[in-house]
Design a binder for these strands. Structure first.
Length: 299
DNA sequence: TTAAGACCTGAAGT
DNA sequence: AACTTCAGGTCTT
């Protein structure tokens, strides 16, 4: 067993682990206690005793938990570098928001969730989980992703417990639409199966979007079945590190209508460009994530 | 190129 | 207790 810790003092801008992992940007991580993802967005402030979260990236089990003064981890291997990557621990939140535009909504959101970080999920799992996310509540998306892992992912033991990795492209490609419908995916079943088939066959891979200019990368991702502009933006932001990407969902459309009506351009691409500019360009996706969670928790 | 309709499912709201 | 609506949209026509 490997273990280690990241002193919180070393993480510029702090870390709200619960908000980061339970806010609906990542479906890689699970909370170990029974109340996991009851529906409300949690933050570290809501938790009397910090729970463990676990994930199984690349078949390695990783558990993380916050203590008074550190993020501690245990894993089947040395997970230090992996965690920096997955949880974007090297992002300097203070610097990012020092460059953010001076907007009331942004200031309020930062004040409400200091320490909220973006994640960098493995690309294939991110692709599939956001295909599953359409017209779904966050907690149900977690259930679907867990079901997929239990049904088709490799089992890995760690400290006497059995964990399941997210299925590989081959494992998902080998399923049928009927199998996935039985698992509760509904109309998303054929999207997931066919997209997995595309990746397994080597026809396309979400990481092939890397290196392209932002809008070209988004366009590339829409070749996957079940991936439109919004889901593509989620993959770019939550997996591929395009921090300027703003997933324009129903919540953000409400933000545009209520706060920045001049950004409404009648179509996704143009409205997205206008809002991206309003949110400061380079880190617009980071800003969006704060605003999104602030509004979602404001009831 | 733009615009309605359909689409699985279950929790939450009348 | 039934019935309608809605949920981080996408695909089809």
């Amino acid at each position: 067993m490997h273990s280690g810790r990241f002193p919180l003092a070393d993480l510029a801008g702090g870390l709200d682990l619960a908000a980061t992992l339970e806010s609906g940007q990542s479906y890689l991580w699970r909370r170990e206690d029974g109340d996991a993802y009851a529906g409300d967005v949690t933050t570290d402030r809501d938790l009397d005793d910090a729970p463990w979260y676990y994930a199984v990236p690349d078949g390695e089990v990783v558990r993380v938990r916050k203590t008074e003064d550190a993020l501690v981890w245990e894993s089947t291997e040395d997970a230090h570098d992996r965690l920096v990557r997955l949880l974007r621990l090297d992002d300097d939140l203070d610097a990012i928001f020092a460059d953010a535009p001076a907007l009331d909504l942004v200031d309020d959101a930062r004040g409400a969730f200091p320490g909220l970080r973006l994640v960098r999920d493995p690309a294939f799992g991110c692709l599939i989980s956001f295909i599953c996310s359409t017209q779904m509540r966050v907690e149900r998306i977690h259930e679907m992703v867990s079901s997929l892992a239990r049904a088709y992912g490799d089992a890995v033991s760690f400290q006497g417990e059995t964990y399941h990795a997210f299925p590989t492209p081959d494992q998902l490609a080998a399923t049928t639409e009927g199998d996935l419908r039985d698992l509760g995916l509904g109309y998303r079943a054929p999207y997931v199966q066919r997209t997995a088939e595309m990746v397994a066959a080597g026809d396309a891979h979400p990481e092939d979007a890397l290196g392209r200019e932002y809008e070209a990368a988004r366009e590339y991702l829409t070749r996957f079945v079940g991936v439109g502009d919004k889901v593509a933006d989620c993959i770019l932001l939550f997996s591929l590190g395009y921090l300027e990407a703003i997933p324009l969902d129903t919540w953000m459309q409400t933000v545009v209508a209520d706060h920045y009506p001049d950004c409404e351009r009648g179509n996704y691409t143009e409205t997205s460009r206008a809002l991206r500019e309003r949110f400061g360009g380079e880190y617009a996706g980071y800003v969006q994530t704060y605003v999104f969670h602030h509004l979602r928790t404001a009831e």
